[in-house]
């Protein structure tokens, strides 16, 4: 095999960027789902309490 210079910084940068972005997207989506579920539960609870007090 012919001698090639060290290209590991390029390889490391590619993997770090791709895996880093994937982790950020995945964690971001999971946190958003958790937050939206909690918010919906709070709004539904509030609506139920209002209905009960109105009746």
């Amino acid at each position: 095999m012919m001698h090639l210079p060290n290209h590991w910084p390029y390889i490391a940068a590619s993997y770090a960027l791709t895996l880093g972005c994937s982790v950020v997207l995945g964690l971001g989506a999971a946190l958003r789902l958790r937050k939206s579920k909690a918010r919906l539960a709070a709004v539904e609870g509030h609506a139920r309490r209002r209905e009960r007090s109105a009746s």
Binding site: G26, A30, L33, S36, L40, V43, E44, H46, A47
Partner: peptide, 22 residues
């Protein structure tokens, strides 16, 4: 990721509808 984001968007949309109705 897309399934999670879409599920979150559905929850957010339901919460917005409930708030608007109340």
């Amino acid at each position: 990721v897309i399934f999670t984001r879409l599920s979150a968007a559905i929850h957010e949309s339901r919460a917005r509808q409930l708030l608007a109705r109340s």
